[in-house]
Simulated scan of single mutants.
Amino acid sequence: MARVEVRGLTKHFGSEVAVAGIDFSAPEGHFVTLLGPSGCGKTTTLRCLAGLERPDAGEIYIGDQCVAAPRQNIWVPPEKRNIGMVFQSYAVWPHLTVFDNIAYGLRVRGIGRSEIAKRTQETLDLVGLSGFADRYATQLSGGQQQRVSLARALAYNPSVILFDEPLSNLDAKLREHMRLELTRLQQRLGITAVYVTHDQSEALVMSDTIIVMNHGRILQQGAPEAIYAEPASRFVADFVGVTNLLPVRVAEAAGATGVAVAETAWGGAAVHSMPRAYGVAGGT
């Protein structure tokens, strides 16, 4: 397993800034989620980690290896990064059996036939598909196809696994079940995971660390409890949880204790420990 470290990652599409110089890390064995609305830059960031997009600036490390650094002219292609990726669309080939879908990555790496059979069967057992080896994708449910996609990404023992909104095509009940399954597998294997979603519930339930993004920037990162209970901005508070945002006026600024007095619109007074970037001084 390996850590992931991103330093100053920047990506443009024409004049549009998709990712604006972000920094974050995913410690070895941790589950890190990039959370934000559509167009916030989370998927572009993931694709840069995977090697499917070339960044315009910054550095990406997987373990001790720098896999992308435009200024130093470093670029490691996707197939040499030892990563697994699970796509939103499953990307399961309909003309191949479940066994052949999972074994594909092993075959292109030149692994011997007996080792392929062994690893593929072990991975089938791991994801609960041991009796499905000879079936085709058209004979599988959406949840089963997602398990095949996960098994294919795990079969060659990647050091990091990337998830691009893998549960968004599943119904609500199955999505909840798969959240637990993915978390269980990640913890059992101890693999480093970077997960992209716009679903706040997924992020809160599954993650060791949540990174909230908007307009290509990181607004806040931390443990799920901290992100939910101590949002650093109005956007984070509104996006991450079910919140009541009350307009207030600061009657007495916070002193050394960090406690301020805020008056509500209906005249009552309340004492709060003000979040550090809530915009309270501006009246909200």
Rank of each mutant, 00 (worst) to 15 (best):
T209K: 08
E122G: 10
L162Y: 08
W266Y: 10
R3G: 12
V250E: 11
A50H: 03
Q220I: 03
K11S: 11
S15L: 12
F87T: 13
P224D: 14
L49I: 08
Q200H: 03
R249S: 05
M178L: 13
L174F: 05
T10K: 13
T284Y: 04
Q187L: 05
I22N: 04
T97E: 12
F163H: 02
H30E: 15
E16H: 14
R276V: 13
S141T: 09
I191Q: 00
G222P: 15
G58Y: 00
V236Y: 04
Q186L: 02
S114G: 15
G36H: 01
D125Y: 13
T138C: 15
A137K: 03
N82S: 11
K118S: 12
F24W: 03
E115T: 11
R135S: 09
V271Y: 10
N82Q: 14
A133M: 09
M85Q: 08
G190V: 00
A269K: 13
W266N: 14
G283E: 11
Q145P: 10
M1Q: 05
L9W: 09
T43F: 07
I60D: 09
I111A: 01
E225A: 12
I74V: 15
V205K: 04
V4M: 02
L162G: 08
L182N: 04
Y228V: 10
Q144W: 04
P158D: 02
N73Y: 02
C40Q: 00
E5I: 14
E165S: 06
M274N: 02
Y156A: 08
G282W: 06
R135L: 13
M213G: 00
A155G: 01
E225D: 15
P224H: 15
C48D: 09
L167D: 05
L52R: 03
Y61C: 04
R109S: 11
G58V: 00
L170K: 03
G128K: 05
R81Q: 10
R188K: 12
I218N: 00
R249Y: 03
A254T: 00
L49S: 09
T257G: 11
A57M: 00
S233C: 08
Q200I: 05
P231D: 10
T183F: 04
P275T: 07
L34D: 07
